[in-house]
Amino acid sequence: MEPQGKIALVTGGASGLGLATCTRLVDAGAKVIMLDLEASNGHDVATALGGGTVFAPGDVTSEEDVRRAVELADAAGGLSMVVNCAGVVMGKRLVGRKGPIPLQDFERVIRINLLGTVNIMRLAAAAMLQNGADGEERGVIINTASVAAFDGQIGQTAYAASKAAIAGLTLPAARELAESRIRVMSIAPGTFETPMMAGMSAELQASLGAQVPHPNRMGKPAEYAELALHIINNPMLNGETIRLDGAIRMAPR
């Protein structure tokens, strides 16, 4: 799909992977609806990006908020592209020094990372069905999994479960939506330079980067965005989860 002149919805768009994706899509001539929390700096980011970028404050787990963002896309000409970058990370063992993990902590990660993604997918796909087919397709949905889906570390049970579910739903969702000419793909990043990583010490960041075989560093958000754009442009990419990780395989801890 050629992004020029089309409408994209990017979740978690005010920072990290989402911001890099918004920037790349605007550069490619797309108009972006940026969905992020009201507490984010989304208003300022959207203004700085220009290109008709619209900030849609909201929570991916809220049906009302997501419907509002999709309606903004419809009003702008119809939703054609979705990139789901919103998510949270939590490091807790199933049983720690203080006992079992509180169930609500595990549930929060699943709710945001998995159910939030599904909430976007179902409402976005319904909107895409109203599009006329542009050549071979009506829309593209890209989700964010993680290498933790395949080799999660100790303390990542909730996070790994949420991301493994994203990888697991990719093919069946792609098969279901194929008859409607909507593609579904997932990207599984390794260790990337994101706001979450920025909160860690320089020593820890260097250690994480050193674990990547080649290139021997953490990934850059722009590299994620470049893959997202390639997926959008390449109609044969469908139903697959692509590891974007420099060949890293995470150790148990």
Rank of each mutant, 00 (worst) to 15 (best):
A126N: 12
A126Y: 00
A127H: 11
M128N: 00
M128I: 00
L129N: 11
L129T: 14
Q130Y: 00
Q130T: 11
N131C: 06
N131A: 07
N131W: 08
N131E: 02
G132S: 14
G132I: 03
A133K: 08
A133Q: 11
D134N: 08
D134F: 11
G135R: 00
G135V: 07
E136P: 13
E136A: 15
E136I: 04
E136K: 07
E137R: 06
R138K: 15
R138F: 02
R138C: 11
R138L: 06
R138V: 06
G139I: 01
G139Q: 08
G139K: 04
V140K: 01
V140S: 05
V140L: 08
I141Y: 10
I141P: 12
I141N: 10
I141F: 03
I142F: 03
I142D: 03
N143T: 14
N143V: 00
T144D: 13
T144V: 06
T144K: 07
A145N: 02
A145I: 05
A145C: 10
A145E: 12
A145K: 08
S146M: 05
S146V: 04
S146K: 07
V147L: 08
A148N: 12
A148M: 11
A149W: 04
A149D: 10
A149C: 10
A149M: 08
F150D: 14
D151P: 00
D151N: 14
G152C: 08
G152A: 09
Q153H: 08
Q153G: 13
Q153N: 12
Q153W: 03
Q153V: 07
Q153F: 01
I154E: 15
I154H: 10
I154C: 06
I154W: 05
T157F: 03
T157D: 10
T157Y: 11
T157G: 15
T157V: 15
A158F: 01
Y159F: 12
Y159D: 01
Y159V: 00
Y159Q: 01
Y159I: 02
A160G: 15
A160K: 04
A160P: 05
A160F: 09
A161I: 05
A161T: 15
A161H: 10
A161S: 15
K163C: 04
A164N: 05
A164T: 07
